[in-house]
């Protein structure tokens, strides 16, 4: 199963209700957004004058750039398939891709608030909320969850429910009979480019000119931080484990912080 969202630009009128309903539902501070609308055009496209909107949210990517960069301690976590009850146990850091529903989620308790994931996302879909800082962190990373708690309660995602244009459709992309899959067959695409191909599962459908304008919003490069961070995170994880086992966390931590800072300065 892979949850996904379709946004039909033929219907979207750019009313911003999605962005605000999300903010209300999840108490997102005004400094940040899990769900946004950018107004595009009127501008010339190869297919004529166009004006449309970029209603954006987390893409819950098939190959998320934000997951592997998480430097938090890993834990064995057991995931459960809501439908079949099947379980799977995996070792994950503070953010992961759910093996059953395909959404990308965060464990806020374990999040360090370092922002590596936010830096790694080419879509800017994540933010670190400093209001949620606790003894162990500077804040917590946050983003769209595809409203999993609502979906599990039998509700639509908040942005889908409020959409007066019925421009947003939520469902299982792996189910060929689902409404979202039908849109994919009709040509709904994610915001990808030559260098950014991480399998976005929030997809857009629309006429040629609107889609041409929308595609100007596709990220052209993977964030630099993402490659550097993932390398560092790769170094960090085994080191932390080792450090833990040797009861030398303090020293190892200091060393790691130092190396990170040096990297940042470069």
């Amino acid at each position: 199963m892979q949850y996904g969202m379709i946004i039909n630009l033929d219907r979207c009128v750019g009313c911003h209700a999605c962005a605000v309903a999300c903010r209300a539902e999840w108490e997102v501070p005004v400094e940040f957004a899990r769900n946004w609308v950018r107004r595009l055009g009127p501008a010339n496209t190869p297919h004529g004058l166009a004006a449309t909107y970029y209603p954006g949210l987390c893409n819950h990517c098939t190959h998320p750039a934000c997951v592997d960069v998480c430097p938090a301690d890993t834990e064995m976590v057991t995931f459960k398939d809501a439908k079949t009850g099947k379980t799977k146990t995996m070792e994950v850091a503070a953010t992961w891709k759910d093996p059953f529903n395909g959404t990308v989620q965060i464990d806020k308790k374990r999040c360090l608030g370092c922002g590596a994931c936010a830096d790694a996302c080419p879509y800017g879909a994540r933010y670190v909320n400093p209001d949620l800082a606790d003894d162990d962190s500077d804040g917590k990373a946050d983003k769209c969850t595809y409203c999993m708690p609502r979906v599990e309660a039998g509700l639509q995602p908040a942005c889908v429910q409020t959409c007066l244009a019925e421009a947003r459709i939520f469902g299982d992309l792996d189910d060929p009979g689902s409404e979202v899959s039908k849109y994919v067959k009709k040509g709904a695409v994610g915001l990808t480019s030559k260098n950014v191909q991480i399998g976005p599962n929030s997809r857009y459908f629309g006429n040629k000119k609107d889609m041409a304008l929308l595609m100007t919003q596709a990220p052209q490069e993977m964030p630099e931080a993402s490659s550097r961070r993932s390398m560092l995170a790769g170094l960090l994880k085994p080191a932390r484990k080792q450090a833990k086992s040797l009861a030398l966390a303090g020293i190892a931590g200091t060393l790691l912080v130092k190396s990170l800072q040096e990297q940042e300065k470069e």
Binding site: G113, G253, L256, Q261, E264
Partner: peptide, 14 residues
């Protein structure tokens, strides 16, 4: 515990 001082500073400014 914070490993990214740069970000902490950034957040403070922000």
């Amino acid at each position: 515990m914070a490993i990214n001082l740069t970000r902490r500073n950034f957040l403070k400014t922000a």
